[in-house]
Amino acid sequence: MSFITERISRRRDLQGLLFVSPFLVGFVLFFAGPMGFAAVISLFDWPVLSTPTFVGTDNFTRMLSDDLFWKSLGITTLYTVISVPLGMAAGLGLAILLNQKIRGLALFRTLYYIPAVVTGVSLAVLWWMMYNTEYGIINGFLKLVGLPAVPWLTHTAWVLPALIIMSLWQVGAGIVIYLAGLQGIPTELYDAASIDGANGPAKFRHITIPMLSPVLLFSFVLGVIGSFQSFTNALVMTNGGPSQASLFFVLYIYRNAWNYNQMGYAAALSWALFVVILIFVIIIFRATSSRVFYSGSSVKGGI
């Protein structure tokens, strides 16, 4: 009997493996494999087409004295620290508005989501046109209200704010997640709070935020990971300039690999980015472990 049970169990295991095999194969071939390869070549000086030379951990120690490593890491971190909370706040605010019973709700939801499906380069070109100092629509509006034109993409002080503002354009994807979370909050909680005399802000603080906290955490973590990997907008619109003021970390990796022919160093930088993101994610989970409420579990958040 136990033999039969064991065979059934093994068969189920195999079936399970079969079902997950597309992911496993894809993961090994396209994620784990390249990551492992990057780890190996990070130990070499490899100018792409020439024979790689083993340099040990030189590529990693070199980072410490590389000004652009620190500069690009600083720019990317600043971008992340500002754009992610700002994007979450904007997304949540809009999701709350779109969660109201108003006419044309489906249209509004669609409109807000559309930018999220526009491809990166198209979006970058569109914003590039809008940010034009002389003829862009944004400065046109500023001039209408009597403000001076802003050199959005050609001034070192303005280029990062410009890219942060642009990132808000893509909050649509977050809105969908927040809306799903909001609609999952039992209305009884709000009713009970109303009976107890709670006003809108109190309900938001004591019901909406705690009930949404798993969704917010998920969004926050993905947002941080995505922000650290920002690349397209800077590559297309500014190419890291002016004066390296928008040199994002991934753009710096890209330049090392393809502009400077330092594939080994680029691989080492990629692993450094992985570690940086990992540290941030661990900090986020640790910092929020007692603040995330999982309604289906008796245990509060954390990993």
């Binding site: 652009l68 050199p151 050609t154 001034h155 070192t156 002080a157 190419n239 890291g240 300039g241 002016p242 004066s243 390296q244 330049r255 090392n256 502009n259 400077y260 022919n261 330092q262």
Partner: peptide, 21 residues
């Protein structure tokens, strides 16, 4: 020189034409 190519120099000089530097 990696990081100090002609393109990198042009990027540094861009701020001349906005009057920033």
């Amino acid at each position: 020189r990696p990081k100090f190519t002609a393109n990198d120099l042009a990027d540094r000089l861009l701020v001349l034409w906005t009057g920033e530097a």
